[in-house]
Design a protein around this nucleic acid. Sequence first.
DNA 1: GTTGTAAGATAGTGGCGATATCCAAGTTGC
DNA 2: GCAACTTGGATATCGCCACTATCTTACAAC
Lengths: 216, 216
Amino acid sequence: MLVSELSERAEVPLATVKYYLREGLLPAGEPTGPRRAEYDECHLRRLRVLRLLREVGEVPVASLRQIVDALDDADLPVHDAMAVIADVISAGPEPGAQDPDALEMVDDLITSMGWDRIRAESVDRIRLAGLVSMLNGPGPLGASPEVLQFYAGLADHLAKTEISLVDHSADRSRLLEDMLTGSVVYGQVFAILRQLGHEHHHAEVVQAAASGTPGA
Amino acid sequence: MLVSELSERAEVPLATVKYYLREGLLPAGEPTGPRRAEYDECHLRRLRVLRLLREVGEVPVASLRQIVDALDDADLPVHDAMAVIADVISAGPEPGAQDPDALEMVDDLITSMGWDRIRAESVDRIRLAGLVSMLNGPGPLGASPEVLQFYAGLADHLAKTEISLVDHSADRSRLLEDMLTGSVVYGQVFAILRQLGHEHHHAEVVQAAASGTPGA
DNA sequence: GTTGTAAGATAGTGGCGATATCCAAGTTGC
DNA sequence: GCAACTTGGATATCGCCACTATCTTACAAC
């Protein structure tokens, strides 16, 4: 297929497709002449993944480039590619000052969960420490080890189930793309369901309080 | 305290504090003269909340204004204020074409969870339908009712626990600010823990597959 | 008084994600 | 064979957003 068809099928403006080609997010098509090139289903899939990451995951274009580099590096084992991708997606603008206490809390949590496969350089580990440090700073919110354990237990259950559901027999690029998009989209799905749960349960306690203290 | 002290204590650049005052995110201080005004702890708390929502939650400034409007409207009951805030935070750029099938799946899910307090206009409900529609479109990922139920069950448990932990006896603005910041920060905490869980469990299945098929 | 800084208003900056325009070279319809 | 159209490719421009810098006036403290 030609660029214009690619653009139509993915419902992405032609100018944007060209932009992605320019940025190296989308590999160039197979040239069939000096001013002509052919694109296939892989390009279409890749383009859909890119748009999903941008629109649902709000991943910046610069990060997308790092992600496709990992995706397309056939020498990189699947698990290492996922690690690179996880780091890129979690990377924020904030290196921030390290808080040793918070980092220790996080490492204790990781140990108590038996998560012995987490890399020490994991961006998520550092970022979590940043959040914990923020929670334990000024303000009424606090992150006790018990509360963190509760969250981690739930997250472990969710993550374990999700990993068990992926079809590990697919070929490398499909596998990576599916894990990536699944992680992003279902992450959003869960976040929204949590919000909906808040709305429902908050309504219930408010009503209970109102009927329990009718004159207050 | 004076603006400069407010800026120092919250570790926010003075120019940014002035910007927030201009935008109406931060109420003006009590004027003690034609060119002088006094700020108190409420301003400091509010400023910290605003920065947290921006930095952790990546909430746009325009949304912050809508949020503080709800926060400061003393006539708005707490639950209604939370509903407004939830809608503002979940609002994306995408009204998008409605997919009746996806919306029906979402409504079935909501019914099966017993979530009878969700407003029909809830932005989250619509957004979830958008994601489901995307999952059931082209691509290998699919959102079956069973999978959605699994996510919703977990989300319900999490949300219920979180709601039970908030101190409902605090005064209105503290209560709202705490629920809001808690929701945003712990949402991030959970998301990161999920990622860490993925990293650990994926490493385990990869290793199991490698030792199970040593010569493949 | 002199100096420093607050408050307030106005204008400017930088990053990012596209989008628009132009051009030379092929392709297609006739 | 010829004209109209489209493609790939390069360059320029746009719009939004979150700040940030500058300037002015007036008060406060020494």
